Amino acid sequence: MIYEANSDVKKKLFPIFKGINDTMILSCLQGYMGKAYVDNIEKPTAAEIIVGVFVFFAGDEKAKAAGELLNNLPEDCFVVASTVGWKSSIEEIHKGHADKFQRYAFKKDIKYLNYDHIKSFLSTLPEGYELRKVDKAIAYDKSFHEVSEDFTAQFNSIDDYLNRGIGFCILHEGKVVCGASSYSIYDNGIEIEIDTHPGYRRQGLATVAAAGLILDCLDRGIYPSWDAANLISVHLAEKLGYVMEGPYDTYHIVDRQPESLK
């Protein structure tokens, strides 16, 4: 049997997840968003964190409830595990439904983010486009959500996003065509989400939107964390000053038909 962790139990999970350097884990364990599940309330040995479509496993992959944790997934999700043992179990239980690929982590150190360098990209915005901080009018605008539902999806409501989140977007002819926003939040920072409307890509808009968001975070004294899903995102991050730490295994699991551990 598995149990949903309350705030007290979450405090016990920091050592278990120490091996995974992802801010979404902090978002959950610090009580901002997401859910955590454990094999034992009093003394958890295996644990799972779910924030949106991202799932993280850590602890003892041989625990009695490990199989149940591994079957406790959203319909379409991205799974990260801390050990070879967890990865082997993921591949066994979700065989035929787990597509393994590489995401890319970056060093989380503000010293790499040069304010003036990042600010220089603001002047590259093409004529006819406008960089705007997300306000109530934009947050409720249909075009903002058409670019990406993930800008606000992890918040309780749009008003909650306006109260706790941060976003910058680029407008063209009155519509949002690109945005950089807080996918998730934690004590001292945010996890960045960037998306551009398909018809407006390859114009440098994402660079400008990201620069606006990063500068705002630096002004606030919080860290704008970047984690890349592909090499395009890697190159954009490096252009802005981020330094890559390295790739890590991720599983995209969809249309799953869970099987029990053998």
Rank of each mutant, 00 (worst) to 15 (best):
H252P: 09
D219S: 12
Y251M: 11
P44M: 05
I222W: 00
D255Q: 14
I192D: 08
S260A: 12
Y129M: 12
E149M: 11
F14T: 12
T124A: 10
E92V: 07
K87L: 14
A237H: 08
A180S: 15
G189L: 11
S233F: 00
K108H: 10
R256A: 14
C28E: 06
N71H: 01
G31Y: 06
G165S: 03
M1A: 15
E238Q: 13
N114T: 06
F17L: 06
P258T: 09
P258I: 12
K262L: 15
K100A: 08
E48K: 09
R132L: 08
D99P: 05
H252D: 04
V208D: 07
L26G: 04
Y32K: 08
Y242P: 04
V134L: 07
M244I: 13
N40P: 03
T250L: 10
Q257I: 13
S260N: 10
T196K: 03
L205Q: 12
E130F: 03
Q102R: 15
G34E: 05
T23H: 10
D227M: 04
L218V: 06
I16E: 05
K239D: 05
M33Y: 02
A209M: 03
D135S: 08
D8A: 07
L13T: 06
Y186P: 09
D135R: 06
K43I: 06
G67I: 03
G19N: 15
G59V: 04
Y242R: 04
K87H: 14
G59F: 01
D249F: 01
E191Q: 12
G165W: 00
V243M: 01
Y104F: 12
A81P: 07
H172P: 03
H97L: 03
I222Q: 01
C77I: 09
F168D: 11
Y3C: 05
I253D: 10
A46N: 03
G128V: 00
T23Y: 08
A206W: 00
S88Y: 05
M24V: 06
G212C: 07
I166P: 06
R164E: 13
G31I: 01
C178N: 10
L162A: 00
E92P: 01
T196G: 05
E238P: 05
I194C: 13
A46T: 12
C217M: 09
S88M: 15
A211F: 04
M33F: 00
A47D: 09
E191V: 14
Y3S: 10
P44L: 03
I222G: 02
D160G: 01
V84R: 15
S184N: 08
T207D: 05
L205E: 11
V254E: 14
V51N: 13
S225W: 02
K175R: 13
A180M: 02
E68W: 02
E193H: 02
N21K: 10
H235N: 14
S148T: 12
S143P: 04
A5I: 06
P198L: 07
E130H: 10
R164M: 09
S225H: 12
E238T: 08
I253H: 01
E48R: 14
Y37V: 07
V208H: 03
A65Y: 00
A105W: 00
N230I: 11
V147K: 01
D249N: 11
D150R: 13
I2F: 00
K133C: 08
K95A: 11
S7A: 14
S143M: 08
G174F: 00
G189W: 05
K64C: 11
S123F: 07
A105F: 02
N21I: 11
H97Q: 02
K111T: 15
